[in-house]
Design a protein around this nucleic acid. Structure first.
Lengths: 239, 239
DNA sequence: CGCCTAGTTGAGGTAAGTCAATTCACGTGG
DNA sequence: CCACGTGAATTGACTTACCTCAACTAGGCG
């Protein structure tokens, strides 16, 4: 069972021939080191990846050196799918930790669609879910204050990790620094620190030494106005 | 030539059989009035649309009544494609003006993919481009100040309108109110007003009486740090 | 004529940013 | 083993971009 099969199987109940097509894809395993970019903004990308283990982030760099992190990727997520479809990447992808990925060649993927069109639908679904997450992120940055934004971020990430068995309503391990959080949430690192203290003092959550601990998951969700429906991925949508 | 064919033809050079498949789609023409939602947040949507004429916007409503506009749609854009793919809509779509749309049934679309897999690729491309726009929007709200954000918004919209022959580097007509701009840019309506004045006084652009006028398009782009590459759609990507 | 919506402007408040200093954990090399 | 440098987190003092409240104008329309 490759990560790609697990990913697409969540959206479409894959038939035996479809599995065969997917398994026939060339799919080289690669390792990247923390902090060494896989995909560079402005470059014509050749390959996309499925993340096997570790954490990555995708961001856009501003001319003045600021950056906005668009999303973090956790095991099972696509890396650079959009770059590869649009041929030139509009963003950079950087491993947060050392990561292990499976490479996917676009030409192979496009050919696979021809042989098994429902695979195309599955990828379209995966892309739509990613877009829904970016939209929710946009709402947070546009309309939530710093504390709500942080709370929402922590519970969303928790939900995503729970789906892949790496988290629970009690918490999860998280390799992100306060600087990374700041770049993702559109805050300064100093303010991230203050907001984390605030959440801690409110008895909602603690983020310390790479561990997120939910003291009161229900109250935290309420505070963050978190609604998981956009993450729903409970069963294959297409039989 | 239906709007759907024009849309997908921009991404994939459509063959005769593919055109036949697309033309065979049931595709009812419908009219919606300004302000009367087509697609409601939380509802299970049955149909997606391609916008024929008029302007629409998609937004998310917060429990406290605030809203964040995610994007505006102009003629040729999809409405509610993501809602329909994910089965339940995570956002609302509202016509800004009276609009004319062509309805697309999802089942038809999915069937079309089976007959002509490259159509699936074309839709995937269209979705990726939409996602790229949301990402750019996120960057603006997260990392640009109010004036840059407004400037960027105005030139981006101008570029999109130019692609469909409804704008130029001189300007365009724009039915959006300052309240809509505020909800899109994550600002207050009052501040939108001040920022527009600032851009006017800087000799960059004027937005008044439904007309956006670029006084100095080059300088405005520079000020906004606008880079159109994510909008690139000059020629079909797949032959 | 009067109401309503969109736009405009001023005054004052506040959430979040910036600058700066301190602590702590860590690795690395002498 | 200790000295040193470096990166992350923490906290305080001060600044500022944007918000809120409020008042006012101008056009559209029943």
């Amino acid at each position: 069972m490759t990560p790609l099969i697990r990913k697409l199987g969540a959206f479409v109940a894959l038939s035996a021939p479809e599995l065969t097509v997917l398994e026939s894809l060339r799919s080289r395993r690669r390792i990247f080191r923390a902090g060494r970019d896989l995909i560079h903004q402005g470059q014509a990308g050749q390959a996309a990846y499925v993340l096997g283990s570790g954490w990555a982030c995708s961001y856009k760099l501003m001319p003045d050196g600021q950056r906005q992190i668009v999303d973090f990727q956790i095991p099972g997520d696509f890396l650079g799918l959009r770059s590869v479809l649009l041929r030139t990447s509009d963003h950079t992808i950087e491993p947060v930790t050392d990561i292990e990925v499976m490479e996917i060649h676009v030409e192979d993927l496009l050919k696979a669609f021809a042989n098994a069109p429902r695979l195309g639908v599955a990828v379209l679904w995966a892309a739509s879910r990613d877009e829904a997450m970016v939209v929710e992120h946009l709402v947070g940055v546009g309309r939530r204050n710093a504390a709500e934004r942080m709370a929402h971020f922590l519970v969303e990430l928790g939900s995503r990790l729970t789906l892949i068995g790496m988290g629970s309503t009690a918490g999860y391990s998280c390799p992100l620094t306060q600087y990374l959080l700041a770049d993702a949430l559109g805050l300064s690192a100093v303010h991230v620190n203050r907001v984390l203290r605030q959440l801690r003092e409110m008895g909602l959550a603690t983020f310390r030494d790479g561990e997120v601990i939910f003291h009161d998951h229900g109250r935290l969700c309420a505070f963050a106005q978190f609604d998981a429906s956009y993450l729903d991925q409970v069963k294959p949508l297409l039989k």
